[in-house]
């Protein structure tokens, strides 16, 4: 399989062109804008959280196939999960993008595994998740993907 085929799985191109969770949740409890200032990708994530459970998630914005598909798959994966489960999913997603074998709980998100092979594109896949974390922290103003630590500090 070529590098392109490993990265641009059918589901990624499909979701970027025909997303299932594009739009805005209404009524919503959380809203967060995410930006990748270096490339101009932008995302507006809306969520409805009841108690500790995410009832609905949706996104609007524009960007590359990887960021759009990642946002769509994330919004779908978040729905119905508790906040604790969502954070665990994020951790598993990040581990996969560091090159670790994908955890089973990632489900459709495993389609983004190939992105780990291209350091230049990892931020595209993590932008939606960084935006989600910002929404959970109740940040004011847009969050930049650049605030995300690029690498672990040497120990």
């Amino acid at each position: 399989m070529s590098l392109m085929e490993q990265i641009y799985k059918e589901v990624i191109v499909e979701r970027s062109r025909r997303p299932k969770r594009r739009g805005a949740v209404d009524p919503r409890t959380h809203e967060q804008e995410g930006l990748n200032p270096s490339c101009g990708d932008e995302l507006n994530l809306t969520l409805r959280v009841a108690g500790d459970r995410i009832e609905a998630a949706a996104f609007e914005g524009q960007g590359c196939a990887i960021s759009q598909a990642s946002a769509d798959l994330m919004a779908e994966a978040l729905e119905g999960r508790t906040l604790e489960e969502a954070r665990a999913l994020h951790a598993a997603f990040r581990a996969m993008l560091r090159g670790e074998p994908p955890a089973a709980e990632l489900g459709d998100l495993q389609a983004l595994q190939g992105v780990a092979k291209l350091h230049a594109r990892v931020k595209c896949a993590t932008l939606p998740w960084t935006t989600f974390e910002g929404a959970m922290q109740g940040r004011s103003g847009p969050i930049d993907v650049d605030v995300e630590p690029e690498a672990e500090l040497p120990s």
Partner: peptide, 11 residues
């Protein structure tokens, strides 16, 4: 998207 084109070229 231009980034997807650039990735294809990079490959």
């Amino acid at each position: 998207h231009p980034h997807d084109v650039a990735t294809a070229l990079d490959s």
